[in-house]
Design a protein around this nucleic acid. Structure first.
Lengths: 155, 155
DNA sequence: TTACGTGCAAAGGCTTTGCAGTCGG
DNA sequence: CCGACTGCAAAGCCTTTGCACGTAA
């Protein structure tokens, strides 16, 4: 399966991360890693739980949160807060800088990459003698499908 | 007092906003509006409560949250979530586009304006057939004073 | 074996809601 | 007067913590 091909090496990296600091590689941790690192969207902890459940895997809430934390600390996963009242996560693809288009109608998130934008932000940080660590760029509004739906029904 | 001069008209706008939709102009609402619209930083609800208390004004939690909501809906106040676990607010100054530099050491927030950045984001939204409503740009890292402190104590 | 993980349930922190009493217009 | 507001307290939601038991190495 093609998806497996992309996910497996990431899970392997997580295994290494755990081994390197002499932390046990448990089935729960691997289950969470596989589901999250194999996600192509921005799932919340609750959504991850649902996906695990769907695969017949039950992982306790605390373990789920703790494992997601570990994945974030390992650098393999990015944490987001789009203002939904909960956090969302995504596998981090270190080479591609990207920001998010967040639709307030359907809650959908589309990614976009922009080199110039990234450079501009680093420059700005420099200008303010601010040590850049990371940035967050979001555009909030209505996505194309939702716009079309609006036009279809109301206009 | 000079600060008063900037705040008063904003409070007046809020009064109008309330009157326009036949909502009561209560002393609590005006108290919250004065403190929030007069803030030059990004206070949380809890900080607003402290500032009100300091002025000898007690406003119930629910009322405080509801009034802040009203101020956000009126467009006079912007809501932020910098990932502290709570929301922060600031008077919106519609003419000045600005983004935030958030220090993860001291929690301080510095604003910066960037026309080009703003234009670029609108363009990006367009390219994705996304209806732009607002954006959120944050740079996270360590601010100059905290960097200096680090260098001073750690070498 | 032993340190760390796991799951459950309880606690926490911020925010919202329900309701009796109160007040602006 | 009436509809909306206020304050308190309780509930809600996501997340973290405490603890007895289990498991990777």
């Amino acid at each position: 399966m093609l998806t497996r091909d992309k996910t497996a090496p990431l899970v392997e990296q997580f295994r290494r991360y755990l081994r390197d600091r002499r932390l046990p590689v448990t089935k729960q941790r691997i289950a969470v890693a596989e589901v999250l690192l194999g996600s192509e969207d921005h799932p919340s902890v609750d959504l991850l739980r649902q996906r695990l459940e769907a695969k017949g895997l039950h992982v306790g809430t605390a373990t789920l949160y703790r494992t997601v934390d570990a994945l974030v600390k390992s650098g393999l996963v990015l944490e987001h807060d789009f203002g939904d009242g909960f956090r969302r996560y995504e596998p981090s693809t270190p080479t591609v800088e990207h920001a998010h288009l967040v639709c307030r109608r359907c809650g959908g998130v589309v990614e976009f990459a922009n080199e110039r934008l990234a450079r501009m932000l680093r420059m700005t940080a420099d200008e303010h003698h601010f040590h850049y660590e990371r940035d967050k760029v979001e555009i909030h509004g209505i996505c194309a499908p939702c716009r079309a739906r609006d036009l279809g029904s109301a206009g």
